[in-house]
Design a protein around this nucleic acid. Sequence first.
DNA 1: ATCGTTCTTGTAATCGTTTACAAGCCAGAC
DNA 2: GTCTGGCTTGTAAACGATTACAAGAACGAT
Lengths: 329, 329
Amino acid sequence: MSRPTIAEVARAAGVSVASVSRVLNGLPATEEMVVRVQRAVQELGYVPDSRARSLKVGRTFQLTLAVADVGNPVYVTMMRAVEEVVSAAGYRLVVTTTGSDVVDEVALVRGMARGYADGLVISPLRVDDDLIKSIRECDVPVVVAGNVPASAGVDTVRANSPKGMALAVEHLLTKGRDRIAFVNGPVDTVPGAARAKGFADALKQYKLEAAGAIEADDFTFAAGRAAGQEFFKTNRPNAVICANDLLAVGVMHELAAYGLAVPADVAVIGMDDSELAEQSFPPLTSVNLGSAERGRRAAELLLARIDDDSRKPKRIVVQPTLSVRRSTP
Amino acid sequence: MSRPTIAEVARAAGVSVASVSRVLNGLPATEEMVVRVQRAVQELGYVPDSRARSLKVGRTFQLTLAVADVGNPVYVTMMRAVEEVVSAAGYRLVVTTTGSDVVDEVALVRGMARGYADGLVISPLRVDDDLIKSIRECDVPVVVAGNVPASAGVDTVRANSPKGMALAVEHLLTKGRDRIAFVNGPVDTVPGAARAKGFADALKQYKLEAAGAIEADDFTFAAGRAAGQEFFKTNRPNAVICANDLLAVGVMHELAAYGLAVPADVAVIGMDDSELAEQSFPPLTSVNLGSAERGRRAAELLLARIDDDSRKPKRIVVQPTLSVRRSTP
DNA sequence: ATCGTTCTTGTAATCGTTTACAAGCCAGAC
DNA sequence: GTCTGGCTTGTAAACGATTACAAGAACGAT
């Protein structure tokens, strides 16, 4: 059966549509009016059509979070944090996944016409001028959870991965591990580039040489395994830092396959400190890049901008901490 | 700057709004008309307002997938499958999370007014009469990925977890493990109940006694650890079946803590065969309950029902297989 | 030259809400 | 008794698209 409209409710209650709308939106009305309308609503099982409503009021009360890969547990952490903030503000959160290709991201932002959502938090893997252009032209507010140039003029919340790298390297050095290898994700991604630079800087700071660096095809478990396979045949570092937890777990599987013990033979450090770090075996020492806090603050920034679009863009940097677990000595 | 409407495009192109709409929707028009409209569209950066469009045409071209917990990797598998099917059909998928409470699920279905999406795939943990009632009253099609009574009169796609249990028990028996324990999730959930019954039936079939059964508080890693902690102090099964992969991984951590080797001392089998089964160490033998196929078929059912709401409800059962990995001998 | 047919384009109604405005009603003050 | 002011309620115009219908143009056939 088809949904009743406000007109049918009005007819059933013997009042005008305007009165029904007013009662539903809690505007002043007599006791009797409220009762009549509510009874009619009850009886017909009326629920307002949100399309029509949002067409009129200009808001959908939906916010979108766009992430590259739902399989990456770091996004779970971020998603939970965002969800908490936006639902407290009376919005519902919808999550969509972009894939790691920048043209998909651009298409998503372009298609983010007013009408799908009132705002967008996007965590892009790859950033190019097209993406930045589409974000600026987007007619709903966009907050980037990630690193884009200040010139883009957009609210951002990003991690400090160089500092995170430094934490990881320092930790390994205090544990006496000085032959440190690095398994990165694709360096043409924003996090990949940042982490590569961070690793190089951290080593330079301690006047160390890298014991090897390898670029995985992707930020996934499978790519981590593949990277490990290629690498540990020939190289013998006593520690390896991975650009995220999935890569680290993939690498640990390969280490086991080559009969190397973690942490005794090789210490392993991941990044993101996702739920997977806790679940892996041995539990993974991981650089906490503050995904939860980044999610929370990105959501807050978005709400603030929806509230007032004229405020100048804010760029927040969340500082990392190290979660030490048993994959390091 | 505010988004231009179709009226402004029409004015800029010097044609009527109807013509603009027609060109945009690919209806027949002269070459010149097409060019003029497209240039105006280009120039103004016009994007149709999807609210207005869907108000008129009665469809949003969005479908919703509602899952209990985004942190559970089984939903990642399902989500990917659903996404693939619906995006091929020209819909966009939005994912929302309900939490494990049935009242949240009911609220979601109730609020699923026409206008948010054209259909819903829901995978409920707990089912009660209220939920079924809300599904029947929902004015957009709903497909349940899970087990609800046939009397509910709704399309469903469900797993055959008793059969899956039997596969797990058989596998253990052929490997000579006959003291089998069971770590279940909450038995007041639909999957919890199904798996409890499946386990009991499977044991009966082989005339075995359970070497212990324990009910975790939740289907999570933390609950798995807690369950293991409580359990392995006193009991000494040589195999344990867990109601999902997260629980299994939690249990394996506790086994390690008690110095028990997997699979040498205790074999472990999970259920869902999620990405985590592959990522865990040792890789987890897991009952594949066909999450991907369930997702795919649920999506297909939903599309079919959107197409024709009069067809009678279909109830699909997906058969399980066993993915043997190294957590069993 | 006139008529009918076909094709293109414009006008206006519509989807289901919200809300500005007007109108009606009642009470209280003079 | 009339008038003012405050409430309540109804009428109708939006919001931005789609689309039924009508009107006009072009063109061939008689």
